[in-house]
Write a protein that binds this DNA or RNA. Structure first.
Lengths: 339, 339
DNA sequence: CTGAAAGCGCTTACAG
DNA sequence: CTGAAAGCGCTTACAG
């Protein structure tokens, strides 16, 4: 490799060095077939020798970043999202797309943020990892690109350019209730996000309550909390005092479940002998906790690969928006016992 | 807000709409002071009305992305890194820099990757979160921008444009050994990354061994593992069989510690009664595990804010490379007991 | 303080 | 198959 100093090389330099025009270099760079094998080889040799990389900003400006997918992640240290992000990255790069990841705070409006970034980056499409339905309702109309909402169902929203891949959260909530009732629990508390919303928490709550009423049980007590250990810890303490005689907790995520377990242990309760805890998501940590967290596992791999595939279909073939619903699968664990 | 259809607006459109030249719009956009408050206000009003955002690719091309910092993260679902990333993002945006995060596999050469991305993105500087010293030795010379290695010490490498912020890993290893010896443990096994390297694992191992020899103990048995639950689990089982009579384990990260605890519990051992486990890093999970993980906590907040501040000083004021070493702080936890 | 013009490093019709 | 030229959306001397 020839050492260079100072300014990076441009396509012009390569053209000069290879003794040809810039358009020819550009063709070699982009694997065009309007170029002879011979010159392509010669140019590539020069590129290799001088270790040239094209200026991506200039490229993206011309091509409108057509090979980039924007990934908007709600919240930054979410153990459920991190393997999804990883798999989305892998799946899209094998489909020939770069991923630009952007984490945003849960309080921010992810849709507005994405809209701004779209004119900034000009990606070919957007994947939202989680999101607040109200934000979509309010500002999604502004986004004209193919988009996917991963992890929540966007069917009700009815946008032409918004597909979604998610677990059937209502059914998941029902399954949670059935697992608990079948083990003899009658008084169950609930720990989760906004239960009144259209979003995953609300749907799971709705499913849970539907089983309660079928089985003649009361509407369960609940306590709102964020998807963090510390928030779950506090909420679990509050719930324990509010919901007298509670023998089990349905936590809307495994992170919440782990925080709740820690809280109950600190209060001198045994899990699951005194109180059972059932999580949601099926993150890796649930299998390494003590006790292991019983959970409704989401098919992470399917969610990520479908998200990418559906988005690419929309981008490349103009496919219409569609909504895929998968099933969360119950997985037992030491945190949930029989009464 | 006025609705627009089709193509996004350009600076030309705004100029036309505001009745001025493009250079004036550009000045308003960039907060130049060569522009009257009056016109600036008028232009900003138009920009707001039409919800215009400049094309970032074109901007970055002209400005060589001078306001972007590239953040290279080794490994993707690292619980120790995720709060660091978050804080680095916050600190740099308040210093006026955008962060472009890129996760890479642990097997990849992060330095070569960064070098390629530098000509692709033309950032103002690079922050490496973790990294393999061998890769730096081999290929860092190629990178001419101001860089920071966060989480490992780069002093020995002696590059003029590479600073570092890290914990004193050798001292951390010594502290770990002292805490264990002081509690009566004599036979300790070690679980961690490449112990023969110059990197953090190697230094901690070196510090640990130095205390062993001071106290007349043997060189401890060790088992190599990656920084994941599953790898730690397997390694802990292997270590248990290799290191007969072991009463404690020093794990090079809290993730490894959690995986090891799970393994020992599954083998019917009690933690800490039969075997103590000491971690490293001080991630949030360590305080929510059961038992809580005793650990050497890294000052995450200091590491992130110093990394950004030092890099910005190098970029803006041409500050020289420097190397800051912080202290890991012991934090007790139920995973470590007395013998 | 403002605008017309040049130019950043690419890609892509267009003409050969 | 190849090259000269136009143009992408910005920023920044330069001249007023």
């Amino acid at each position: 490799m020839i050492q260079t100093t100072g300014e990076p090389l441009t396509i012009k330099d390569i053209a000069r060095l290879a003794g040809c025009g810039v358009s020819t270099v550009s063709r070699a760079l982009n694997g065009s077939n309007e170029i002879s094998e011979q010159t392509k080889e010669r140019i590539n040799e020069v590129i290799r020798q001088y270790n040239y990389t094209p200026n991506g900003n200039a490229r993206r400006m011309r091509r409108s970043a057509e090979k980039t997918i924007l990934l908007i992640v709600n919240g930054s240290s979410n153990l459920f999202f991190s393997p999804l992000i990883e798999q989305i990255q892998i799946a899209s790069s094998s489909a020939g797309f770069q991923i630009a990841v952007n984490h945003i705070d849960e309080q921010e409006d992810e849709v507005q943020f994405a809209s701004r970034l779209c004119t900034e980056l000009r990606p070919a499409g957007v994947i939202f990892l989680g999101g607040d339905m109200r934000n979509f309702k309010r500002s999604f109309a502004r986004i004209k690109l193919p988009c996917i909402l991963s992890t929540a169902n966007a069917e009700e929203l009815g946008f032409e350019n918004l597909s979604s891949v998610s677990v059937d959260d209502y059914e998941g909530g029902r399954a949670a209730a059935e697992q608990l009732f079948d083990r003899g629990h009658k008084k169950v508390g609930i720990l989760g996000g906004d239960l009144s919303s259209y979003g995953p928490s609300g749907l799971r709550y709705g499913g849970f309550c539907s089983v309660c009423s079928e089985r003649g049980a009361d509407i369960p007590d609940s306590e709102l909390c964020a998807y963090t250990f510390s928030s779950a810890y506090e909420a679990a303490v509050a719930l324990y005092h509010k919901c007298k005689g509670m023998t089990a907790v349905f936590a809307m995520s495994d992170i919440i479940a782990v925080g709740a377990v820690r809280a109950f242990l600190d209060m001198g309760k045994r899990v699951p002998e005194d109180i059972s805890v059932l999580g949601f998501d099926g993150i890796e940590l649930s299998e390494y906790s003590n006790p292991r967290i019983a959970t409704l596992a989401q098919p992470i791999h399917q969610i990520s690969s479908l998200s990418v595939r559906m988005l690419v279909n929309m981008i490349e073939d103009g496919a219409e928006a569609s909504h895929v619903t998968l099933r969360a699968q119950f997985r037992s664990g030491g945190s949930m016992g029989r009464i």
